[in-house]
């Protein structure tokens, strides 16, 4: 099904490799919880992330990008597929088969920044305890050394280190997001999943946080899986971009290639839909007809074909292959 060449080659630069990951949520009914169907949140996804690279996933709500991000970190166990991750000891492990205790150790190297800066911090803990949580869990530090290190972290992310004893309710959204970032950085991971990390913030604060993320990447050689619905943000921060539509990645390419020469009809529509902050440039919109497909009742063939203006008979019959149309430019479409 998938083009094996690019994905199987053991590349020393690879940090993360996702192969054929699926996540089906069962739909149950009745007292006995009989399974009557599945919501295919993520359906057969392949991708990889290199060291020090940012891969962005974009798509509309319900496309499965958040589920995919959580499957990568094993916050949700995927139904099928493998997730290979290279740890700081340069071991290549399959996270999906790792036992609980080994996985807990590997968590040092991969962390997550959440969308909602209000819900993702325990309101009953002080800033110190929140940021120190991963260090305490992994028994890496304690006492005054821990305190000093948390202070350092707070400074790194642009927080006043004197606010150590404050509770999250005393901070604004942007500052809370910084606390979340400091927590994610505490164990000096090499990989971060940013799940809509700036979507809840105002534009001016959003820019501050994006700058911080980029600075940290440079300083600590971090890799990001950057999940967002905002094409503008994605175009600035990522090296490569994957576009998702109801559980499938439909196109994945270098940022420049994707924005300048989109191939998939859905990518084209998505790019044209974003309002441009310039009244002189009237956009040429590709209006999509109909609604996003229901992930529990996917149409046969290409999931996008009922809304696709370029669709042909073949699109409704056969699922398009995941192929490399140009070097580094992957696409799943019969017509492109």
């Amino acid at each position: 099904m998938r083009s094996a060449e690019a994905l199987t080659a053991p590349d020393p630069n690879r940090l993360l490799e996702v192969r054929g990951v699926k996540k089906y949520f069962p739909i149950t009914k009745g007292f006995l919880k009989r399974t009557v169907g599945y919501v295919r949140a993520v359906d057969d996804v392949d991708m990889y992330i290199n060291k020090g690279e940012t891969l962005a996933l974009v798509g509309e709500s319900g496309c499965g990008k958040t589920t995919l991000g959580r499957c990568v970190l094993q916050a949700i166990k995927p139904t099928a597929g493998e997730v290979y991750f290279t740890t700081r000891k340069d071991e290549r492990v399959d996270l999906t088969t790792l036992p609980y205790d080994r996985l807990r150790v590997v968590r040092r190297d991969m962390q997550m920044i959440f969308q909602d800066p209000y819900a993702s911090l325990n309101p009953r803990m002080t800033t110190l305890n929140i940021i120190a949580e991963p260090l305490v869990c992994h028994r890496l530090m304690s006492g005054s050394r821990l305190r000093g290190y948390v202070r350092e972290l707070m400074e790194t992310v642009g927080l006043n280190p004197h606010h150590l004893e404050r509770y999250p309710h005393a901070f604004s959204g942007g500052q809370r997001q910084r606390i979340g970032i400091a927590r994610a950085l505490a164990t000096q991971p090499r990989f971060l999943v940013c799940d809509e990390a700036v979507s809840a913030l105002d534009v001016s604060v959003q820019a501050q946080i994006l700058n911080l993320l980029m600075d940290l990447q440079e300083k600590m050689n971090l890799s990001y899986l950057f999940i967002s619905h905002d094409l503008g943000v994605v175009s600035h921060i990522s090296d490569r971009v994957g576009v998702m539509y109801v559980g499938h990645i439909v196109e994945l390419a270098d940022t420049a290639a994707l924005f300048d020469r989109p191939m998939h009809p859905y990518t084209k529509a998505l790019l044209s839909a974003k309002p441009v902050a310039d009244p002189r440039r009237k956009s040429h919109r590709i209006m999509l007809e109909g609604e996003v497909a229901n992930p529990s009742k996917l149409p046969p063939g290409c999931p996008f074909h009922p809304r696709c203006r370029e669709a042909a008979a073949e699109c409704g019959e056969r699922k398009p292959e995941w192929r490399e149309a140009e070097p580094g430019h992957y696409i799943a479409c019969h017509r492109a």
Partner: peptide, 25 residues
């Protein structure tokens, strides 16, 4: 002016820092 500069738009794309407004409201 600062607000306009800080919007990330796809067409003035380049990987690099954003112009942000310091502090908060």
């Amino acid at each position: 002016r600062a607000l306009l500069r800080s919007i990330p738009t796809a067409d003035k794309r380049r990987k690099g820092r954003f112009d942000s407004i310091r502090g908060t409201v």
